[in-house]
């Protein structure tokens, strides 16, 4: 298969997760690694529901609800910043591991004999699902709620002064973020044909990398002073994912020793992340007129 086409396909499956991480990392400005767990939770709920004979679309909804609840759980652990967000997400990950095991009932569920989405609607359902998730993010972020979520991320203490209860924003934001991760889990299970207890490993970091790279790329293209634009940010998420998968597939094709793959990918990420620092818009006030 063409390397670009392959990367494109992988990006479409991965995009909901990147957008989920974009919600937590860029909009709410907290580091949330829980997606590693809710990704599996989504896949687990979906696979288990299917194997119990639930209709695929209903199974998707169950998985989404599960992911949302996962996000709510993290926000409750973080409640009022009593627990550092990183620690909270690691704790949540810890809990989710058991939850996922209970949901799946075993370490691995195969989907190949079930009536899955692809079985019912064909391959293009994945693209369609991805478009739905994009639509969801656009709706959330361009609404008043989106504005408030961004306010929460930008200046939490001011938000606290203006509205008495900011915890609901944390809850909703992390809920949606993890719901998207679960959605990605569903799509991944669908494409790969199985759900596995360990399939979430490294998802959050890859996602954060994609978000950072993508948004940086976008900001180099659109140097407008108006900072926020849902469309260009989502395009950024997409480009970030695409860059990641393109470089991953290219490196594999060049024949980099797999054991060195993470080193090379990591170095590329660091280079890009360092590059972000010198991006003009990141230095506040430098391009003031």
């Amino acid at each position: 298969m063409n390397i670009f086409y392959l990367a494109l396909e992988q990006t479409i499956v991965f995009l909901p997760l990147v957008m989920g991480i974009y919600l937590s990392y860029k909009i709410l400005q907290t580091t949330d690694l829980t997606v590693d767990g809710t990704f599996v939770l989504g896949a687990a709920l979906y696979a288990r529901s299917l194997s119990m004979g639930v209709e695929p679309l209903v199974a998707v909804l169950i998985a989404l609800a599960g992911g949302f609840l996962g996000g709510v759980m993290v926000s409750l652990i973080q409640f009022k910043d009593k627990v550092n967000s990183l620690i909270a997400s690691i704790l949540a990950l810890f809990i989710l591991y058991s939850v996922n095991f209970q949901v799946m009932g075993r370490a691995n569920i195969s989907l190949q004999d079930n009536r899955t989405l692809i079985y019912l609607f064909g391959d293009q359902i994945i693209l369609f699902m991805c478009l739905i998730s994009i639509g969801l993010v656009v709706v959330i972020l361009s609404s008043q709620l989106g504005l408030k979520l961004r306010g929460f991320g930008a200046n939490k203490s001011l938000m606290q002064k203006i509205t008495s209860n900011i915890e609901k924003f944390r809850m909703l934001g992390l809920g949606f973020s993890n719901m998207l991760a679960a959605f990605c889990g569903v799509l991944t299970a669908e494409v790969n044909g199985y759900a596995d207890i360990n399939m979430g490993f490294g998802m959050a970091l890859t996602g954060i990398g994609s978000v950072v790279i993508g948004l940086d790329l976008i900001r180099r293209v659109y140097r407008s002073r108006k900072i926020f634009n849902v469309g260009s940010d989502i395009l950024g998420c997409f480009l970030g994912g695409l860059t990641y998968f393109l470089s991953l597939n290219t490196l594999l094709r060049i024949g980099i020793e797999p054991i060195n793959l993470k080193l090379v990918l990591g170095v590329i990420l660091v280079m890009l992340l360092r590059g972000v620092g010198s991006s003009p818009l990141n230095k506040i006030g430098v391009n003031r007129e």
Binding site: N155, L158, K226, I227, F228
Partner: peptide, 10 residues
């Protein structure tokens, strides 16, 4: 008293 990195209007 401001939300940094957001527009004046926002």
């Amino acid at each position: 008293s401001i939300f940094p990195n957001m527009s004046v209007l926002e």
